[in-house]
Design a protein around this nucleic acid. Sequence first.
DNA 1: CTTGCTACTCTTTTT
DNA 2: GAGTAGCAAG
Length: 712
Amino acid sequence: MFAFLEGLNDKQRAAVEAKDGPTLVLAGPGSGKTRVLTSRIAYLISVRNTAPYRLMAVTFTNKAAREMRDRVAQFLGAGKAGDLLIGTFHSICARLLRRESARIGLDRDFSIYDADDQLNVVKAALAELKLDEKKYKPASIHAAISAAKNDLISPEAYRAESYFQEIAGRVYARYNAILRANNALDFDDLIMETVRLLQSDAAVREKVQERYAHVLVDEFQDTNLAQYALIRLFTGRHRNLFCVGDADQSIYAWRGADYRNVLRLREDYPDLNIITLDQNYRSTQTILDAAMGVIRKNPNRIHINLLTQRGHGPKIAVRELFNEDEEAQFVVDTIEELVRQRAAEPGQIAVMYRTNAQSRPLEEAFIRAGMPYRLVGATRFYARKEIKDVLAYLRVINNPADMISLRRIINVPPRGIGEKTYEQLESAARAREASALDVLTKGDLSLPGRAGRALQEFGLLWAQWVRLRNELSVGQLFDHVLQTSGYKDHLRDGTSEGEDRWANVMALRNVAIEAGDVMLSEFLSNVALVSDVDNFDETVNAPTLLTLHAAKGLEFNVVFIVGLVEGVLPHSRSLDDPEQMAEERRLMYVGITRAKDRLYLLRPFRRSQWGDSEITEPSRFLSDLPDSVVDSKLHKNSELLQATTVWQRQPNKAPAGARFQPGDRVVHPRFGEGLVLRSTLVRDDEEVEVFFFGAGGKRLSAAMSGLKKIRG
DNA sequence: CTTGCTACTCTTTTT
DNA sequence: GAGTAGCAAG
């Protein structure tokens, strides 16, 4: 008996042991999709005697890839797992393209541009075309370019159907030209260029197809057209394709993911073996019923009836709180209580939200309570200025043609090389068809005065770094550049903020040192392609704050979903488009199904934005929960509104000596949080009228009820 | 060329 | 309400 087959149910086992050829495993959340995929790998190696290096497994995050590798290693030993090609679409393509860079007309040390760099390239292209940034937002233009690339449309093939697209098409052509001149590719290029290479070059294609006898794909519903084409090219004649996915968890349509790839798969492979898994091993039936209640409303889907043996568990707590701050406070208080009662480990609790901006009140509440937490995303580590600066230094050393990175650091710290001076350098480089480094070291650009000297000095430094590049390890080069560039002293300016930034740079230094003696280009590639969840530290026992998107593929004993308000979830940008609305619904579905045992769905009554706050409507998804699974019903807005307006209209103070004032935020052991409407003194006690957001209006004794003020 | 001020935009979601 | 782009002054 093989370890990887233990504990699998009949359907899972049928999937793992499927015969060669195209197979698609369609399965609901918590059904062990990834387990099936890893078991399949183990099965192919140990039962079917497939050499490990002949397998390619593709995931969407490095974290998923790492986990898959670890699990295969458990079954087969680290040696065999080490031979497997398991990686993300982007990392697999980057590797291939680096090896074959000559065939696509790039130097093997090409840079990989992230979202930030891409925006800078769009801005440069707009400037060259003398187009107004205000009129054509770089972000929108870039979205159009990215969409084209995800659909494998080259600048030449781009057909505009509107005036905006007309502009976008022109920028696209310039944009790509700039990328190539900088010896750089963007994220989307990694896929598109690999597809083009495999399509046009039979030798490379056959080499890849021959080598990888089996292709396995995780999260198939998130593939876009380019990735689908890539899968087909990888798969080739052997047709040994094994995909797992769940159309109900498709939440990346906005970046080109196309659930119709499932239909394409059926068309392209008429003999496709489809296996459906509905058994859920994660959540209580209560949570699954809630999830199905929400997802059922989506049109054009094949319903999977989610079933579990885990029993019903506690009901879902739906709570209405006054605003985001109180919502956050509720989360923290509830977590404290759950942990005190030993109902959950802190590390097994997650708080999820639609947008990164929503993490802020939560973070504040955690900090106030002195409770540690883990934050995924937000100001991403690799998006921080100091990190991008240091990486830009390394990138210009690795790839002297990279003007986007050069521009970033040429005057950081200030060296007296301003915009004008930089532009002269750039146009000199362009005129001579040489890199800026060549121009500087050959000394054939002589500018007079301060600027000229500053450039010359920088050129000497730069040339020295490039010479050291092959002599020093990445870690040593890192230290050397930081010191000699003056960036270290620039950053450590004596402020505490400077020290924070320095600490981040030191964290990056650790990554560089741990990288050992890899090539600089490989190191830069790796850091360009890490995602947020990749840095998720499993060993810290603290609650996790993350977006619903980032939560996909994860599971927690206790899940809070906050901000369940129209305009947030579903997001306001999705309200008028049924397709986008369906995706918001799937997002809610993904969130609910992350929970194993307990689920809290929170709705703030007021939402603050742009400084002032406004009354919210509860998310439509809340009303799609079956009555039987929730522990309380929502209040009408009019009731909640009444509570807040009553005290606003009656600003009459409570009598002297009263503990409670109208407008005070209070908490009651049984009724939860509420708002004091009025307070009167009765003999030696105080009668308080409170509107509780979860329980309605009550009249209570101040002395007897256990009523407490919240903060101040 | 750098610094400091004002005015303006911005809120999806990410490899 | 906050981060940043753009501008004026030093």
